[in-house]
C-alpha cells in the first residue's frame, strides 16, 4: 500500500482560529486547509474505532460534511481537532448501529495483577517495527470500543483529559479510570514483546 508521511498532529494555534473564522465566513480555501490538517487524524481515529478502512473513508467524509454544515456552532474557545473527533465518534456510532452489536473480547478481571508483573520496556523497544505495529493495532482492537476511543483520544490525538470527558460524555474520573485500564490491557498484550522477553 502506498504510504504518505504526515506531520505531527496539528495543534490549535491562533493561526487555526483565524482559519476557522475564515471558513465560517465562507472561505473555501480556509475550510480546505482545516480538512487537510485534520482529515488524517480523523480517518485514523475512525479506522481504529471501526477496524475497517473503507468504513473509515466513508465516515471521514461524512464527518467533514457535517462539520461544514455546523461551523457556525463551533465556539471560539473549542479546539477544532477535539470538535471534529467528537463528530467523528457520533458518525461512527450511527454507522455501527446498522452493523449489529459488537462482541467485546477484553477481560479486565485480572488487570490489577497485570500491573505488578509488567516488564519495563528497553530503549530498543521504542522502535515500532511492522510486527510490533501489527501487534499494537491488534491489542487496540481487543479493547472495548468506548475504552479504545478514550485511549486513542489521549495517546494518539493528544486531547487533554477534560476534552475527552466532553467528547465521551463521561466524568473526568471515569475518563482517567478507563484510560488507565485500557493502558494496562494494552501493556499486557504487548508485554511479551518488550523488555527483552517475558516478564
Amino acid at each position: 500500500m502506498k504510504m504518505v508521511l504526515v506531520g505531527a498532529p496539528p495543534s490549535d494555534t491562533d493561526g487555526e482560529r483565524a482559519l476557522l473564522r475564515r471558513a465560517r465566513a465562507g472561505d473555501p480555501a480556509a475550510f480546505r486547509r482545516l480538512f487537510e490538517r485534520h482529515a488524517p487524524g480523523v480517518w485514523r481515529f475512525l479506522r481504529d474505532l471501526s477496524r475497517d478502512e473503507e468504513a473509515a473513508d466513508e465516515a471521514t467524509q461524512e464527518t467533514f460534511v457535517r462539520a461544514h454544515g455546523r461551523l457556525g456552532a463551533l465556539r471560539d474557545e473549542e479546539r477544532v481537532g477535539a470538535w471534529l473527533l467528537g463528530i467523528a465518534r457520533l458518525v461512527h456510532l450511527e454507522s455501527r448501529r446498522g452493523r449489529g452489536v459488537q462482541v467485546d473480547v477484553e477481560d479486565e478481571a485480572h488487570l490489577r495483577e497485570v500491573e505488578a508483573v509488567l516488564p519495563t520496556p528497553s530503549p530498543e523497544d521504542l522502535l515500532l517495527d511492522r510486527e510490533l505495529e501489527g501487534l499494537l493495532t491488534q491489542a487496540l482492537g481487543m479493547l472495548r470500543e468506548e475504552r479504545r476511543a478514550a485511549l486513542l483520544l489521549r495517546i494518539d490525538h493528544g486531547l487533554p483529559y477534560e476534552e475527552i470527558a466532553s467528547v465521551m460524555g463521561w466524568s473526568l474520573q471515569k475518563v482517567k479510570n478507563e484510560i488507565h485500564r485500557a493502558r494496562l490491557s494494552l501493556r499486557e498484550q504487548l508485554a511479551a514483546h518488550v523488555g527483552g522477553g517475558r516478564p
Partner: peptide, 24 residues
C-alpha cells in the same frame, strides 16, 4: 511505558496510508 507508548503512537501516526477519503 508512557514514553514508549507515545513513541509508538507517533510513529504509527506518521505511517498513514493514502486513502480516497483524504482527497478534498
Amino acid at each position: 511505558w508512557l514514553r514508549t507508548e507515545r513513541g509508538w503512537m507517533a510513529q504509527r501516526a506518521r505511517r498513514m496510508p493514502s486513502r480516497p477519503a483524504l482527497d478534498f
